[in-house]
């Protein structure tokens, strides 16, 4: 287990870096591709964990993550981008410099307050994953488009899974399977929901939706 810790830290740092990029890119396709990369990092982390613990279950979990988070979910999201091209906003509320400043503040807060509490776990990577979680929350808040909110939730879940692995919380196959299944259902529902929103309002941009246009579905 000891030798994999540096690797897990590398994966955690990768997740954080990808989260930063997600906050900076302005194209929805890039956002999805970054999520794909993040999910791939998580898959590799799970493979490493299964190897070190000798758990076949975790290997299955990694495989499942690969199928759902690396292949299915991004394919689904890219399909939606193609379908609703022009209606999916990629704009953000804060410009890039301000966004970077906010992210810096969030990271500083995490290291000032959360890191000391996590010191007992002997892993500095936990703090970076906490910063990653807050960064994805910031992404969802800052972006106007619905797609960024979906990707934000999925990215948040990636950070939570790796954080749990780092903190030594039991990571059984059943748990990972349930989480991945949950994600699959979540993506499907979100896609369906987007379709309904588009049909109802003629737009998917969460910021421009007018509640007054709401009518009962026939």
């Amino acid at each position: 287990m000891i030798f994999i810790l540096p690797w897990l830290s590398i994966f955690a740092a990768s997740l954080f870096a990808l989260m930063l990029l997600m906050n900076l890119v302005r194209k929805n396709t890039s956002l999805v591709m970054l999520y794909l990369a993040q999910s791939l990092m998580l898959t590799l982390a799970l493979v490493l964990l299964s190897y070190s613990t000798g758990s076949t279950g975790l290997l299955f979990a990694a495989l499942l993550t690969l199928v759902v988070k690396v292949v299915m979910a991004p394919a689904f999201l890219l399909h939606m981008i193609r379908k609703y091209h022009g209606h999916l906003s990629a704009a953000s509320r804060l410009n890039v410099p301000l966004s970077l400043l906010a992210l810096a503040a969030i990271t500083a807060f995490t290291y000032a307050y959360v890191a000391p509490a996590l010191a007992q776990y002997g892993s500095s990577s936990a703090s970076i994953l906490f910063a990653c979680i807050f960064g994805t929350l910031f992404l969802m808040t800052n972006r106007r488009g619905a797609l960024a909110e979906i990707v934000g939730v999925l990215s948040l879940e990636n950070a939570v899974v790796l954080l749990a692995a780092l903190l030594g919380i039991e990571h059984s196959f059943a748990l990972e399977f349930a989480i991945t299944f949950d994600i699959a259902v979540w993506v499907a529902i979100a896609a369906g929901f987007l379709t309904m929103m588009y049909r109802q309002f003629g737009a998917i941009d969460a910021a421009t939706l007018e509640m007054t246009h709401l009518t009962e579905e026939e």
């Binding site: 509320r93 807050f134 929350l137 910031f138 969802m140 808040t141 800052n142 972006r143 106007r144 619905a146 909110e149 969460a206 910021a207 939706l209 509640m211």
Partner: peptide
Amino acid sequence: GNLSTYLLYIF
């Protein structure tokens, strides 16, 4: 009625 605002509250 703005989803982003609600997310901000959560955050």
